[in-house]
């Protein structure tokens, strides 16, 4: 099975070169945010205020890790269900986010926004938190430490495995994959 190596952050060209069903290994810097952090970021956008991180070209990984033990970069760190971020994702894309990593279904509004803003939705293997934690070499809380597991972290990742589910052409792996194996 072919796997493409990609570097974070992403350009429009990087995005357009990937299609639903592609397996990728991501290296570079990515950021985390889940429910509570998204709510705060979008509130700042609505007020026209500056965000604590620059979203241009960035990956956002939907994760709330377990606390790291002494000596670990991060605890168990698998993706959370992406649908809860649907309400916020179009605005995140408008602000420059290029890709988000989570698991599970996205709304049509999000899929359309990915096409419009040239963005990607990728899924990492849900529930593989121990394995994925080994691909994260460094982790640092950069905003909202009061949110605990929901704080925004800056992660340095190496060969972090994910699969493109929704691409900038409107393709959807969840819809197409199931058709192939249904009986």
């Amino acid at each position: 099975m072919e796997t493409k190596k990609i570097k974070a952050p992403l350009t429009d060209e990087d995005v357009m070169a990937l299609k639903a069903g592609d397996n990728v290994l991501i290296s570079g810097v990515i950021y985390t945010a889940r429910d509570a952090a998204h709510k705060k970021l979008v509130e700042l956008m609505d007020k026209g205020e500056e965000l604590p991180i620059d979203l241009t070209g960035q990956f956002i990984f939907y994760v709330g890790p377990t606390p790291e033990k002494p000596g670990q970069a991060i605890g168990s760190a698998g993706p959370t269900t992406s649908g809860r971020m649907d309400a916020y994702t179009p605005q995140m894309l408008e602000k420059g986010m290029k890709a988000c990593i989570g698991k599970g279904l996205r709304s049509q509004v999000v899929k359309d926004a990915l096409v419009k803003h040239k963005g990607l939705y990728l899924a990492a293997v849900g529930g593989a938190g121990a394995l994925l934690s080994k691909k994260i070499k460094k982790s640092e809380v950069v905003a909202y430490p009061e949110l605990g597991p929901e704080a925004i972290r800056r992660l340095e990742v190496e060969d972090f495995p994910a699969t493109v589910v929704n691409d900038a052409y409107g393709n959807d792996l969840y819809a197409e994959g199931a058709k192939e194996y249904a009986r």
């Binding site: 605890g75 938190g129 121990a130 934690s133 994959g177 194996y181």
Partner: peptide
Amino acid sequence: ESPTGKEVLKQLIENVEIARDEQIPICQDT
């Protein structure tokens, strides 16, 4: 039967082994 499905299952099996050997929670949602 699916190659991607097989890859997912391999990752899940490896994940269980890493969790056990390195005492890391299987999933971050405990």
